[in-house]
């Protein structure tokens, strides 16, 4: 019944409307079957290697937790990545149309447009975006712009599955066109109960889970139930991996306001470097 679907086709601003269940369109999607996930993190390495992603930022990762009391305990895993939302807040809020929704369901970045304002990072409810640090292995690849999972469109369009799917040892990541009833994802979707992250936000994610666990899916729970080691490691991360937003607060360290001051100081220190980059860009533009 395309007509009734047509009516529910929302769009956020200047972009392709959502394609969920709309006949004649594609909606690439990933189902993550958590019964099959063994926490091997092959997906994490595959993705990083595919794109040469710098240390300290991730397009996909695997959250892990332990449940229960000895001896009745269990381990849970939950791979995370961009949800390629049908109604992506990130796209709606981007001031330069650098991020956009592709008609086949991908939410993508155009590095040459991105100004690095990070509005989209603030907007994304899933932390799926990151600012690429100033230095990376291959200096020809973009830096200081926002990046995210592309659902490996460069592979999909060549007829192969995304890198993390290809690498997934457990076979937990399944990828395909959800609008094609014969695709594996569509078949799975009709057979199994799927859950998505933060469904209440109405983003309509294209990544869904079989056997999702509340403990890992809930946002504040993830924070309150961290192991102490993980909390300290996060602090280590904030100390040594300087993001370019200068808003990180180390827990249990200096007072929050003192850190706010230090952050401002950090920001001021970057101005000369950035000014030099801008100057170089000008020189390049004018004389080369």
């Amino acid at each position: 019944m395309p007509d009734s679907h047509e009516k529910t086709r929302r769009s956020y601003g200047l972009q392709t409307a959502g394609t969920k269940g709309v006949a004649g369109t594609k909606r690439y999607a990933m189902i993550i079957d958590l019964r099959k996930c063994i926490g091997c993190r092959s997906c994490m390495v595959a993705c990083k290697a595919e794109f040469g992603i710098p240390l300290g930022v991730w397009r996909t990762w695997v959250k892990e937790g332990d449940k229960g009391r000895y001896p009745n305990t269990k381990r849970i895993f939950m791979p995370r990545l961009c949800n390629h939302c049908d109604y992506p807040v990130c796209v709606r809020n981007c001031p330069t149309q650098a991020t956009f929704k592709h008609k086949d369901g991908f939410v993508l970045q155009r590095y040459n447009r991105c100004i690095g304002c990070r509005t989209c990072m603030v907007a994304c409810p899933y932390n799926a975006r990151h600012l690429i640090p100033a230095k990376r292995t291959d200096g020809n690849l973009p830096t200081m712009v926002v990046d995210k999972c592309t659902f490996c469109i460069h592979r999909v369009k060549k007829g192969i599955v995304p890198s993390c799917v290809q690498a997934c040892v457990g076979g937990a990541r399944i990828f395909g066109d959800m609008n094609d009833p014969n695709s594996e994802v569509a078949k799975l979707a009709s057979k199994e109960t799927l859950t998505v992250l933060k469904p209440e936000l109405g983003t309509s994610p294209s990544v869904s889970y079989i056997g999702g666990d509340w403990e890992l899916m809930d946002e504040p729970h993830s924070y309150t139930n961290r192991s102490t080691g993980l909390k300290e490691e996060f602090n280590d991360f904030k100390r040594n991996h300087k993001g370019d937003a200068f808003g990180d607060i180390i827990e249990g360290g200096d007072s929050t306001m003192k850190q706010v001051g230090q952050n401002m100081n950090g920001f001021l220190h970057t101005i000369p470097h950035k000014a030099k980059n801008v100057f170089d860009a000008f020189v390049n533009f004018l004389f080369k």
């Binding site: 300290g56 990762w61 139930n225 993980l230």
Partner: peptide
């Protein structure tokens, strides 16, 4: 001891920081 603990995750920076608050 918590009944459940999150033992691994990756980390994210706050996207807007001190500069924006001053602004």
């Amino acid at each position: 001891m918590n009944e459940s603990v999150i033992t691994y995750n990756v980390f994210h920076h706050v996207a807007w920081g001190t500069t924006i608050s001053v602004y």
